[in-house]
Amino acid sequence: MRSSKGFSVRTIVAIGIGAALFIVLARFGSIPTGIANTNLQTNYAILALFALLYGPWAGLLIGLIGHTLADLISYGAPWFSWVIASGIAGLLYGLFNRGARIEEGQFGIKEIIRFNIGQIIANAVSWFVAAPVLDILIYAEPGDKVFTQGLVAGGLNILVVAVLGTLLAAAYAKTRTKRGSLTREA
């Protein structure tokens, strides 16, 4: 049901609770890669999945709210350039998957390819471009440093979304299988 202005109640709740999940995973759900201080951030797979399910605006807001609060809670101050980049990533994940019908159990090869091309572009724009450029503009940090950091973070996020995001979306689509299509085996 669309309510009087803009977002449906379901979308608002998805943004709120999706951001809570994003934050919890930011704190506890990162997987060490084996290289010092670099972790796979599983919460970006969740961001991509929620943007796929609830649309680009939900993605944008989960990224912005989730990253801001996660930073506030763990570092005391949000690092705004990366917060904005997370928002852009969420927005783009959603935009590239507009009209996907995962709710109806559709997530085959075609959708997987589209999802992944979309997420690669989204991550590239956010971490290779937006985050470092904003770092330079806002914090006047040195270019070499921020572009390298962006490259590493973006690359890892592409990997996480490609593996975890795709698997989660495919598994979710399977839960939407119609009951009528099943028969018991002897």
């Binding site: 202005k5 608002i12 709120g16 609770i17 809570a20 709210i65």
Partner: peptide, 9 residues
């Protein structure tokens, strides 16, 4: 609505 989403978070 967005303010409330943050409260839900």
């Amino acid at each position: 609505k967005i303010a409330y989403a943050i409260s839900l978070t």
